[in-house]
């Protein structure tokens, strides 16, 4: 019986637990922290209103991320003329507070990450950081699996070029 009856408690706790991930994803997409939180807020309200349409037992994170992503894109379309091509303008968009020893390294990574096109940042985060399968990520982004793979590959190549050049003291053996 309990299986048939979607448990609001489970939904609610899962929902609350995933908010930090939603924030991180939002930050990766739009860089600006305030805007990212607005995005999360809107996502939570929408998700909550539509929670009856969530299929119990399916992936709640994927469901929430998809809502956030769609919200981001429609907002992006609205604001398009205002923030046309804001890619890369958010210096330190994904930057972290620098308590680690490898602060410099991290900042450099963040800078490099910020130079990627939004769809590649998204692909890299979904697959590389959140651990979604290519198939899942492709479903969430409404693209072919091959497209998702090539976005991830291109992101990795670009980062490899940017970061590999920097500390090129390496493996070529001279």
């Amino acid at each position: 019986m309990s299986e048939q009856n979607p448990s609001p408690v489970d939904f609610q706790s899962g929902f609350a637990q995933l908010v930090p991930n939603l924030r991180a994803f939002a930050r990766s997409l739009c860089g600006n922290p305030d805007r990212a939180d607005d995005l999360v807020q809107e996502t939570l309200v929408k998700a909550w209103q539509n929670r009856s349409s969530f299929a119990e037992g399916s992936n709640l994170k994927a469901w929430l991320f998809t809502i956030l992503r769609n919200t981001f894109l429609s907002e992006q379309r609205k604001r398009k003329h205002e923030i046309e091509d804001a890619d890369g303008k958010y210096a330190g968009g994904i930057a972290v507070n620098g308590s680690q020893a490898s602060h410099l390294e991290l900042l450099d990574f963040s800078k490099a990450f910020d130079t990627l096109p939004a769809e590649q940042r998204e692909a890299l985060v979904l697959v590389g950081a959140e651990g979604f399968a290519y198939e899942e990520a492709a479903l969430m982004c409404g693209c072919a699996v091959g497209t998702m793979k090539s976005r991830v590959n291109r992101a990795r190549e670009k980062l490899t070029t940017l970061l590999g050049e920097k500390d090129d003291d390496g493996p070529s053996g001279r």
Partner: peptide, 22 residues
């Protein structure tokens, strides 16, 4: 290194405390 830094950077974002409004 890219994989590690991506995960670490992302984990730092996830670990940030929620703002009051959320």
């Amino acid at each position: 290194r890219i994989g590690r830094e991506l995960r670490r950077t992302y984990a730092d974002l996830v670990a940030q405390p929620l703002p009051d409004k959320l």
